[in-house]
C-alpha cells in the first residue's frame, strides 16, 4: 500500500517530545520499509535505509514545521538518504547474500505452490531490472509507479522540476522495456 494512503491527511503538529517517536515508528515502519525495499531492492539495505530515515526524522522532529504532511517529509528524507548513500562497496555481497539468504520474510516460508514460485521468480526479474536504473531514475519510478505519488509530489520529494521527473520516468520505462524484453516475448505480449 502506498505510504500516502496510510497516513492521516492533516499535517501533524510540532512534535518534539520523544514519547511520540515510538508511535511514529509504529505507524510508518511498514510503508517506509516498503519504499526502502523498492529503492534498494534487497532486505538488508531496506532495513538500513528505513532505520536511517527514522533516526533522521527523530533528530529533525523538533524542526518539523508541520506545513508539509508527514509522509512527504519522510519520503523526502528517504529519497535524499538513498541518493546520498554510498553503498557500492558492499552492494555486490549484499545482493549475493540476499539471493541465498533466508531474509526474515523467507525464514518461515512454507513450501511454495507453482504460482507462488512463479511470482517469486518474476519479482526477482523485475527487481534485477530495477537495479539497472540509475538511483535518480529508480527513485522517480518507484515513487510514481509503486508508491503512487503524483508528479508534483515526486518532484517535491526529489527536489527537482516536474519536467525532470518526466524525463527520468521516460528513461526508466525505456530501460525497463529493454531489461524485461524476454518477459514480453514469453508472455506473448507486444515486443
Amino acid at each position: 500500500m502506498p505510504l500516502a494512503e496510510t497516513l492521516v491527511a492533516e499535517p501533524i503538529q510540532r512534535r518534539s517530545e520523544p514519547s511520540t517517536f515510538p508511535a511514529l515508528v509504529e505507524q510508518y515502519k511498514r510503508p517506509l520499509y516498503a519504499l526502502a525495499y523498492d529503492l534498494t531492492g534487497n532486505h538488508h539495505d531496506a532495513e538500513d535505509l528505513s532505520q536511517e530515515v527514522f533516526i533522521k526524522a527523530y533528530r529533525g522532529m523538533a524542526d518539523f514545521r508541520g506545513e508539509a504532511q508527514v509522509y512527504s517529509w519522510l519520503y523526502r528524507i528517504a529519497v535524499n538518504t538513498f541518493l546520498n548513500k554510498r553503498r557500492k562497496k558492499a552492494l555486490r555481497f549484499r545482493q549475493l547474500w540476499d539471493d541465498f539468504s533466508q531474509a526474515p520474510h523467507d525464514a518461515e516460508r512454507q513450501p511454495q505452490t507453482d504460482q507462488q514460485a512463479e511470482a517469486d521468480v518474476m519479482r526477482r526479474h523485475v527487481e534485477t531490472a530495477l537495479q539497472k536504473l540509475s538511483p535518480r531514475e529508480r527513485s522517480a519510478f518507484v515513487l510514481r509507479h509503486y508508491q503512487d505519488l503524483s508528479l508534483r509530489e515526486v518532484a517535491d520529494a526529489m527536489d527537482v522540476a516536474e519536467g525532470t521527473v518526466k524525463s527520468l520516468l521516460f528513461r526508466a520505462a525505456k530501460k525497463l522495456r529493454t531489461a524485461l524484453a524476454f518477459y514480453r516475448e514469453d508472455l506473448g505480449l507486444p515486443s
Binding site: Y37, A129, R177, L187
Partner: peptide, 22 residues
Amino acid sequence: EMETTLQITAARTRPEPSPAYW
C-alpha cells in the same frame, strides 16, 4: 512495449517480512 513493460512491473509483489521481524 513500454505499456506492457509497466504491466509486468505492476504485477510484482513485494515480499512481506514476518510478524517476528516487525
